[in-house]
Each structure stands twice: as structure tokens, then as C-alpha cells.
Amino acid sequence: MRVEQISIFLENTGGRIAEVTTILSAASVNIRALSLADTTDFGVLRLIVDDNETAEKVLKENGFSVGKTSVAAVAVEDKPGGLNRILILLAKADINVEYMYALQQNGDHAVMIFRFDNIDDAVKLLDSEGIRVYKASEVASL
């Protein structure tokens, strides 16, 4: 139920994102989702890709610090209150969402990437509430 996300430290985000995407495309790595968090001084680029191993290798070769994080890909109903319901569930169970971003649309719902402080408890809770959490293999074939 875990999806591996890679993240990169960027000093000034302007031209560097394009550099990252160029490096990955040259290595035939497909970027499934991308999210940038930044401050005035630096940023962190988070990526879901179809080939983590190659992505990590070529990025390291190009001098980037690459981190790996386990995140969850969660189905969110594409209607008002869909996301809210999930967030309230988590809050009640005292599980923190560190950050989240959209992966893509899949039929009648959106797939979102969540980073939890406790991924195991979060996935268990969502499962028990009938909310779909994608397997890594499912994410790859989305």
C-alpha cells in the first residue's frame, strides 16, 4: 500500500526544475506526478516516477541529493466534500498529513498522494472506512 516517492533539494527553483525533467526524460523516466514546495531560499521537488531506480541513479550522477519517502496514493471522490471527509477521518484518529498533492484523475475520482506521519495507521484507517488506497503496482498502471 506504499508508493515510493523521490525528492530532491533545489537551491533556486527557477531553471532547475526544467533541468531535472530534462535529465529524467533523457533517461526515459516517465514523471507521473510532480509537486514543488519552496521558500524564498530553497525548495523541495517531490516526484512520482515509473522507474525509481533509474531516476535516483541519474539524478545522483548529476549531483542532486535524492531522498526517498513512502507515501500513499488515495482515491478521493471527485465531488464537494470528498477530500474533506478523508481529512476529518484522519484528524479524528490523530494522524497528521505532512503534505499532499494530486496524482491524476481516474474515472469518477481523483488520485492524491498523501504523506502521513504514520503511514501504517493511516492506510489501515482508510481501508476500514472503505476508501481505496492504491498499491504501487496499480499506480504504475494508472
Binding site: S7, T39, V44, R46, S65, G67, T69, E98
Partner: peptide
């Protein structure tokens, strides 16, 4: 320089 040991994927932790 942000080495692998200093890196975190959360802005708050880096700050």
C-alpha cells in the same frame, strides 16, 4: 551543502 544525511523532504525540517 545538503548531503543525503541533511536532506529531508519537508520544508519545515530543512528550515
Amino acid at each position: 551543502e545538503v548531503s543525503e544525511t541533511l536532506f529531508a523532504d519537508e520544508i519545515r525540517m530543512l528550515q
